[in-house]
Simulated scan of single mutants.
Amino acid sequence: MADGYGGKASGQAHHVRDGVMTLTLANDRIRLTIVPEYGARVTELWDRSTGRQWLIPGDLSPDTGADAIYGAAEACGWDECFPTVAPCEHPSWGKLRDHGLLWGKAWEVVEAAVDRIETQYVSPAFRFVRKLSLQDATLTADYAVTNRAAVPFAYLWSQHCLLSTTLEDKIVLSGLDEMIANSAPFDWPHHHARDLSLIGTACDGFALKSYAMTPTVASAEIVNPDGGIRFCWDGIPAFGLWLSYGGWPTHDPVHQVALEPATAAADHLAAAEAIGQAKTVESHVTHRWSVRVTLTGPNRRTDN
């Protein structure tokens, strides 16, 4: 089945669309489109065997300033949230904007090869690096953050892939501790409002952010009879699940799901620090972690 680009060639290529350079990374199973100038956002993630585009589509918002709100127009594709998700004030950073410092900002291309693309954002205080590499049906995202300053700083990171889902999909989680939403624990997937493993409709008027700690190898996936997508990680301590079935925002609400490996079970850095989960990186030290994203085959059987 075609993947929206009309071809099966593997490799990496540069394109310019509406004056913005994009990079593509592809093999026989996966095709990605990346916009280095806009936070190295991954705007497309195609399963070339099914023709499914997994990421929520959208335009590049022109509002990326210090007071920018990450609203419905911005909530698309795959961004990196660092050093916070929700806006907050913190002694290490001062005022932090919604979804952090990285989205919408110009990143540098470090390497663009046939099987990998490495990009980075560099400021006087830190360097944030993400290397994407392909092998068969798996995309590996390797991350590194380096403190370039003379004093330590605290941070929270969350992988923010906004997924396009259907009623045939099911959410399956593994390796997680008890889930918590709005400070109330519950046993996955049995939230008091609904069975969270089942995808809702755009008319449900439902939105929820929930968290769990991930003490060992963990995974979160969308299962579908035709093939799904699985996020797997080890050594990343937390996980966030964002669901909006027409429940956010109030004006022009959206339908989306995000499976979010994260360094803390909190929405903003100050809250992560309050519960002892903020990461601290010392001067001239680098922290590293990785997430594997695998496109799974049809009729995969698994339990919640």
Results as ranks from 00 to 15, higher is better:
residue 172 V to H: 15
residue 186 F to N: 03
residue 204 D to T: 10
residue 80 E to Q: 10
residue 235 G to C: 04
residue 78 W to P: 02
residue 186 F to A: 05
residue 170 K to L: 15
residue 184 A to F: 10
residue 241 L to M: 11
residue 142 D to K: 04
residue 111 E to V: 11
residue 20 V to T: 12
residue 43 T to N: 05
residue 182 N to D: 15
residue 139 L to C: 05
residue 234 D to V: 10
residue 137 A to K: 01
residue 285 V to P: 05
residue 81 C to K: 06
residue 168 E to A: 10
residue 175 G to T: 03
residue 14 H to K: 12
residue 220 A to E: 01
residue 209 K to F: 10
residue 266 A to L: 07
residue 30 I to D: 00
residue 26 A to P: 02
residue 223 V to F: 07
residue 85 V to R: 03
residue 117 I to L: 01
residue 6 G to D: 00
residue 171 I to S: 01
residue 241 L to K: 04
residue 187 D to G: 13
residue 133 S to Y: 12
residue 103 W to I: 09
residue 101 L to S: 05
residue 3 D to K: 01
residue 190 H to F: 13
residue 112 A to P: 02
residue 190 H to Y: 13
residue 8 K to S: 12
residue 230 R to G: 02
residue 179 M to H: 05
residue 286 T to N: 10
residue 291 V to G: 02
residue 241 L to S: 01
residue 50 T to S: 02
residue 53 Q to F: 03
residue 108 E to C: 11
residue 241 L to E: 01
residue 254 V to N: 00
residue 8 K to N: 15
residue 65 G to N: 10
residue 132 L to A: 05
residue 61 S to E: 08
residue 187 D to L: 14
residue 171 I to V: 14
residue 109 V to A: 06
residue 267 D to G: 15
residue 154 A to C: 09
residue 169 D to M: 07
residue 37 E to K: 00
residue 196 L to P: 07
residue 228 G to R: 00
residue 178 E to W: 05
residue 201 T to L: 10
residue 260 E to D: 14
residue 62 P to A: 13
residue 204 D to R: 00
residue 93 W to T: 08
residue 267 D to W: 12
residue 76 C to V: 12
residue 133 S to F: 09
residue 303 D to V: 15
residue 299 N to H: 15
residue 67 D to V: 09
residue 186 F to Y: 12
residue 76 C to M: 04
residue 202 A to S: 11
residue 39 G to A: 09
residue 94 G to K: 11
residue 214 T to L: 07
residue 301 R to Q: 14
residue 302 T to S: 13
residue 281 V to Q: 04
residue 242 W to T: 01
residue 181 A to P: 09
residue 296 T to E: 05
residue 171 I to P: 14
residue 85 V to I: 15
residue 205 G to R: 12
residue 82 F to K: 03
residue 26 A to W: 04
residue 242 W to Q: 02
residue 169 D to K: 03
residue 179 M to G: 01
residue 234 D to P: 00
residue 282 E to H: 02
residue 199 I to F: 11
residue 156 L to G: 01
residue 96 L to P: 02
residue 16 V to H: 11
residue 263 T to Q: 04
residue 180 I to W: 11
residue 143 Y to Q: 08
residue 290 S to F: 07
residue 128 F to K: 10
residue 28 D to I: 08
residue 188 W to E: 05
residue 262 A to E: 06
residue 213 M to E: 00
residue 161 C to M: 15
residue 51 G to D: 04
residue 91 P to C: 07
residue 264 A to W: 06
residue 92 S to W: 02
residue 196 L to N: 09
residue 209 K to N: 14
residue 92 S to T: 10
residue 45 L to S: 06
residue 217 V to P: 00
residue 265 A to M: 09
residue 288 R to G: 07
residue 167 L to I: 08
residue 132 L to F: 11
residue 58 G to M: 03
residue 5 Y to P: 06
residue 12 Q to Y: 06
residue 242 W to L: 03
residue 194 R to W: 15
residue 270 A to I: 03
residue 140 T to F: 03
residue 157 W to G: 08
residue 202 A to M: 08
residue 207 A to F: 13
residue 198 L to W: 06
residue 77 G to C: 00
